[in-house]
């Protein structure tokens, strides 16, 4: 019979023959990560078009329960993974940051699609945040517009690999003290990232420059 727990079993330690099928010897890291990686609960929230593909992924054909990920919770308190599935707008980003702050650690962020990764087709829009990584630490980026369900599943697998490579001794959530919340941005005359407050204040003393057109590219060299 095949070893039922190949991923967590540590074969370096000698186990008597007669106990092989009953006992597995492993490290704390491995069993901890194994159990975490196999039950990542995503948050049930969608932002834009990518959310439709996320729902399609959650349905029968692609079946994320193979990865222990079919349980989507609408409450951030019960989630391990935030899938940022779509365009992040300035009007929405305070809510997203707040949701992230409300998630219990360990928590992960997956940026699904071009918009969440870097603004996507709507990047230049005045109400669009050019990538959720301007505010949240992103663990996995999944390219595509929208990513196919297969691509999203690949993102999940990548996340599992990341989880399995972490070590209890270094993960931030077991360090002393509390981890810092990300300041929730404010909707002012434009989106205000409070971490940039001193820069904004400094800029107010400079002579304002209207947005400038980019310098035209050099004439392309023929050939």
């Amino acid at each position: 019979m095949a070893d039922p727990t190949p991923a967590i079993h540590n074969p370096d330690y000698p186990i008597p023959e007669e106990l092989r099928n009953n006992i597995a010897i492993t490290t704390l890291d491995r069993i901890y990560n194994w159990s975490r990686a196999k039950s990542v609960w995503p948050m049930l929230f969608g932002l834009a078009c990518c959310a439709i593909e996320m729902i399609a992924t959650a349905a029968a054909r692609y079946d994320p329960s193979r990865f222990g990920m079919e349980v989507m919770r609408p409450s951030p308190r019960q989630c391990d993974l935030m899938i940022v599935s779509g365009t992040v707008t300035k009007k929405m980003v305070p809510q997203i940051v707040r949701l992230y702050n409300q998630m219990a650690e360990p928590r992960y962020v997956l940026a699904m699609g071009a918009c969440a990764s870097g603004g996507g087709p709507f990047k230049e829009g005045y109400n669009v945040v050019d990538g959720i990584d301007k505010f949240l630490p992103v663990d996995v980026y999944v390219p595509g517009c929208p990513p196919t369900p297969q691509a999203l599943l690949h993102g999940f697998i990548t996340l599992h690999e990341k989880i399995e490579s972490q070590s209890i001794t270094t993960v931030p959530w077991y360090r002393k003290g509390e981890s810092e919340a990300i300041p929730v941005p404010i909707l002012g005359p434009d989106l205000i990232d409070l971490r940039q407050a001193s820069l904004i204040n400094y800029m107010s003393t400079q002579t304002p420059e209207p947005p400038q057109p980019a310098a035209a590219a050099e004439e392309p060299v023929a050939g």
Binding site: V129, D130, G188, P189, P208, P211, A214, A217
Partner: peptide, 29 residues
């Protein structure tokens, strides 16, 4: 910047905040 040369141009490099924001003159937080 993009056509016909095809160079990459990152808008984030052009704005002071490195992000898609602008504020009216004299605005302080």
């Amino acid at each position: 910047t993009r056509w016909p040369g095809g160079e990459v141009d990152r808008a984030e490099m052009r704005v002071p905040y490195g992000m898609n924001v602008q504020y009216p003159a004299g605005f302080t937080v």
